[in-house]
Design a protein around this nucleic acid. Structure first.
Lengths: 208, 208
DNA sequence: AATTGTGAACCTCTTCACAGCT
DNA sequence: AGCTGTGAAGAGGTTCACAATT
């Protein structure tokens, strides 16, 4: 199958959410133009993105909101449940454990890991924090498929090596650096400072 | 000045951090090849990115780490102090208030706003949460330049309209939807679910 | 009449490749 | 000899524009 670009995938997520809000408002049909307007893209972009995966609309009419959302949900694998481990239970980590949106979309945080002796055995809601050194055991036990890494930059590579070592193939990384993983592992970076710095850049050159 | 792409700007942030780590390790000189290797890009990309802003290297030798970091810092405006307001003091919001990396880079959270009567007057560290309805007064008082929006999706547009109304021109949005702002306002989105869903997508089509 | 689905045109970003410095 | 800086080529992503369909 043809390689589909990251931008297309992330727009698909957007469309999915937009359709959810339309469905809440009892909207039954929507055109690519309307989706485009809501999501700040062109209608051709919406249609082209969808066309990579199939044909979901009716010419002259548009898309059935429920149908289309359901299709996108399947494409993105959102109706599966994923077992997620979170490594590094600091401020960000704790916030993520509470993040409703993750749970709602089937990303179930089943395992908390940290290396700080003070944190180990503490509980966050019902989950007890386990030592990272025991990852292999717990990853197997909870059938972990995805890991969220929210540890400091200087230990992140070591953590990721450990995750890869126990067969985890998908990682969401919050540490602000590029991590090396084998080609068969998918890693996505979430770096809040980078976006803030982009704002700083644009404010700085205002009027130049 | 020629429009520089978002990807270039975000790689500049990456290079900045990479140089910081090299400097910590007492590395004085670095080649585009070495930076590229660390950051997972090509050396031509590194040189091209830098070339948009000037010439910082010495042919045959490479770049002085301190010099280059300093130059990039200036380009990104990182040595300025920015007064930041955070709207929506939920889990994510609280974690951001504690996020060291922001403070270190000159993004100073000076104002916390929320609309929940239970939260108003509560303190997070030294900062008292103020009602969002009083934004105009406080934004002026604290000379707010940047706002972080971490409110639920259904009120985010209203919040952003309020921010724009008091002259804020840069917004970091954590609500998972596209927000409308005038052209002169810069808005960057941080949507953790989108990255997770990309992982879900890739795991789902493994082997297809 | 309205709106999709899509090949072709266009544009933007990345990589190549090499002249030019040190 | 080694590495930068950059114009040109190449790749990839977006938009156009229109035939096809309801």
């Amino acid at each position: 199958m043809k390689k589909i670009s990251d931008s297309t995938i992330s727009r698909m997520s957007q469309y999915y959410r937009t359709l959810g809000r339309l469905i809440e408002k009892k909207v039954q049909t929507v055109s690519s133009d309307e989706i485009a307007e809501i999501d700040g893209v062109t209608s051709a972009q919406v249609r082209k993105d969808l066309s990579f995966f199939g044909t979901f609309g009716k010419r002259g009419l548009g898309y059935n909101t429920l149908d289309l959302q359901n299709n996108i949900g399947n494409i993105l694998g959102l109706y599966k449940k994923w077992n997620v481990a979170l490594v590094g239970v600091g401020n960000i980590g704790r916030a993520l454990v509470d993040y409703e949106e993750f749970r709602n979309q089937g990303f179930l945080i089943k395992l908390l890991l940290d290396n700080d002796p003070k944190k180990i055995s503490q509980k966050v809601h019902d989950l007890e924090i386990k030592p990272f050194s025991d990852i292999a055991k717990y990853a197997k036990q909870h059938k972990i498929q995805i890991a969220i890494v929210s540890v400091p930059a200087n230990v992140a590579q070591k953590v990721v090596d450990g995750l890869v070592g126990c067969g985890i193939k998908a990682i969401l990384n919050f540490a602000p650096l590029n991590l090396k993983v084998p080609k068969y592992v998918i890693i996505k970076n979430e770096n809040m400072s980078i976006e803030l710095e982009a704002l700083s850049y644009h404010l700085t050159r205002r009027g130049k």
